[in-house]
């Protein structure tokens, strides 16, 4: 399998007033296509920043970042928008569903952006909602759904366009443990079925246990792994290229 994400010497800084904060420092990371990878670390370690950079919604300052083998730096905002539209799905901690849209329409939205024909759109959305167990709630607005149902809608929305990568930022943080377990199972099963690469920032041990590889970040730096189990062969971290 070839690498979907290749980062080399990647750094990212923020300016907070007069102080420059290093969010990511000299990150060396490869994520193979089809990987199910967890990003762990304490608050402020740079998990979300790394996730945002991987999701092409934030830019790095230094280093090299190849997505699908193409250099990200130098892409115009319009090119990045198209790239996200075609290749990346997002699952947010707060679900981030569009409140005026039904569950069906929220899932349908990425296909609308891709100009998928209406009949094909409807069939795929119905199929996806069926898959996440929400066929009966298709016409419900987000405020008529439980937290777990909302996150399942968000997962369906992320996967509906069969993206290369799904970035999920603390997808179980706002859910009770039973619902979180269901969501973890669902994400894992869908990842297995679709072959989509998942990159998940999480504190949830149940989630990390299901991941092929857990990447640890501390103060913006990837921590070298003492040992790499066979299941994590899709990921190399800490400059081990």
């Amino acid at each position: 399998m070839d690498a979907l994400i290749e980062m080399s010497g990647l750094s990212k800084h923020y300016r907070m007033g007069a102080v420059q904060v290093t969010a990511l420092h000299d990150v060396e990371l490869q994520v193979q296509r089809g990987g199910f990878v967890a990003l762990c670390g304490p608050s402020g370690s740079g998990k979300s920043t790394l996730l945002n950079v991987c999701g092409l919604i934030d830019a790095h300052d230094r280093g090299r970042f190849l997505f699908e083998g193409r250099e990200v730096k130098g892409q115009t905002p319009a090119q990045l928008t198209r790239w996200r539209r075609d290749a990346i799905g997002f699952v947010f901690q707060g679900f981030n569903l569009i409140p005026v849209m039904t569950a069906f329409e929220n899932v349908e939205y990425p296909l609308l952006l891709n100009d998928t024909p209406a009949a094909q759109r409807r069939a795929r959305v119905r199929e996806m909602l069926e898959r996440v167990g929400l066929a009966g709630q298709a016409g419900h607005r987000p405020d008529e759904l439980s937290g777990g149902q909302r996150q399942r809608v968000a997962i369906a929305r992320a996967l509906i366009k069969a993206p290369l990568l799904v970035v999920a930022d603390e997808p179980t943080a706002n859910l009770d443990s039973a619902t979180a377990a269901q969501v973890i199972d669902l994400m894992h099963a869908l990842a297995q079925e679709s072959g989509t690469t998942f990159l998940i920032a999480t504190h949830d041990e149940r989630m990390t246990r299901r991941c092929e590889r857990v990447v640890h970040l501390v103060d913006g730096m990837l921590q070298p792994q003492a040992a790499q189990p066979p299941a994590l062969s899709g990921v190399r971290a800490g400059g081990g290229r």
Partner: peptide
């Protein structure tokens, strides 16, 4: 604003 961010992340163009 958060919704705008979500739409943009999903690949909606600023013009749209």
């Amino acid at each position: 604003t958060r919704e705008i961010g979500t739409l943009a992340a999903l690949g909606t163009s600023p013009g749209r």
